[in-house]
Amino acid sequence: MTKLRITVDGVTAVAELKDAAAPNGVAAVLGALPLQTRVVHASRSGNCAVVHDAALRDESAGIEGQVSMYYPGMVAYDPVRGYLVFAYGQGQARSSTGTHWVTYLGDVVENAAELAAKLQDTRDRGALDVRIEQGE
């Protein structure tokens, strides 16, 4: 099973990706790694933080295992916009034009609570550095 290591402000968490349900999305995200960028709180989508990077954009990946709602610990991927979304609570894929579908890419399975606290911090602290790499 493909894993991601996500490091924010000294906390490293591991997410397991849905190789079978979202093969194109997993391949697209792996192709962008390692990624050293910023994670910022969502402004319309609720309790989640977003990594927006051009390297993540891959329209050919399409939406797989489509979802709109986010739940705690969920990792979602929008290949058109180049967004990776890390939810720490309830949220939904929304923009100024309405709601959207995204790919359900995986779930955080290690250090979920610690990562959630850092993601929630971005509400008050603003964007934080994030490193995303393939896990073992």
């Binding site: 709180h41 402004s43 319309r44 989508s45 100024s96 509400r123």
Partner: peptide
């Protein structure tokens, strides 16, 4: 002031 998380801009 804190940025909105649901309301947008």
């Amino acid at each position: 002031i804190t940025h909105a998380r649901w309301a947008g801009s």
